[in-house]
């Protein structure tokens, strides 16, 4: 098994910072994630980004409470751009700002 793969698994597990392949559209669809795991998964994914990278969050409602949590925990360190706003699906590009 590739050690790099283990590294990414650890990264997701341990909330470590790091980077993965570039030039791809990263989409995190949280509609299938159990409610209590949604925000931790989103933050772990965010922390795995390198500065300047982003992912698109997909949800079935407006993730406003998440934004408030980002503002509290990572002020000035994230970007938030709505790509689609309902009525069935919300898409938000969340980016990691440079240090």
């Amino acid at each position: 098994m590739n050690p790099g793969a283990h590294a990414l698994d650890r990264q997701i597990n341990d909330n470590e910072e790091g980077s993965v392949s570039e030039n791809t559209t990263r989409e995190l669809d949280v509609r299938v994630i159990p409610p209590r795991e949604k925000h931790p998964t989103i933050f772990q994914t965010f922390l795995a980004l390198a500065p300047g990278e982003s992912f698109v969050l997909v949800n079935d409602h407006d993730p406003k409470p998440l934004r408030y949590q980002f503002e509290f925990q990572y002020p000035g360190q994230f970007g938030w751009e709505y790509l689609e706003q309902g009525p069935t699906v919300w898409r938000v590009r969340i980016s990691r700002q440079g240090a």
Binding site: N13, Q44, A48
Partner: peptide, 22 residues
């Protein structure tokens, strides 16, 4: 979904996102 807490779905979705799975 509610009954699948702790079964790895979050990790899967995060890994798919970070790998750029399309």
């Amino acid at each position: 979904t509610m009954g699948q807490e702790g079964l790895g779905v979050g990790r899967l979705m995060s890994a798919l996102a970070l790998s750029g799975y399309t």
